[in-house]
Amino acid sequence: MPEDLELVRALARGESAALDALMQAHLDALVRITRLVAGDHAAALDAAQEAFIRLWRNPGAFTGGSLRAWLVTVARNIALNEHRGERRRSGRHETARIRVPSDPEIRAANSDELALVIAFLDQLPEQERTALTLFAVEGMAQAEIARVLGTSEAAVKQAVLSARRKLRERFDA
């Protein structure tokens, strides 16, 4: 959006009001999307925060188009890199245990239907759940999602359809 570009330029000039406006417009959504990528809220907060920091430190990197897509791309890369790094470092740090619960376990633990959807989303491959989230929640075009994921439009379509199919299978089970 043109106003996003203006706000980013104001951010580059050090105007804190621009930061407030950008946070107001994008931060919550960014955290929610990144939560699905990162798998947990704390990691999503870190990645979203880092994406904003990178925006003001290098405002020239955003040259227009959808700022939301730009932020999601950066935050997603940060979250994925952090996850890889965590795996590598886990010999020296706390191990993030990934546990894949069975469907009955999920159903028992999540009486709330929305939480159930999130739990099912969490079990999808990362590319599929991010593609579906950007498509269904953000309403992004296939081309834009393809840029965020660094893949083709055809692959995006396949990922979204596959994610829907798997979710439906789980709900029907």
Binding site: V31, R32, H41, A48, L114, A115, V117, L121, A136, R164
Partner: peptide, 16 residues
């Protein structure tokens, strides 16, 4: 299904 996903993601906590 998209609407269900939209509601579910919208129910997640945002930034602190």
């Amino acid at each position: 299904l998209d609407a269900q996903v939209r509601r579910a993601v919208g129910s997640l906590p945002g930034a602190l």
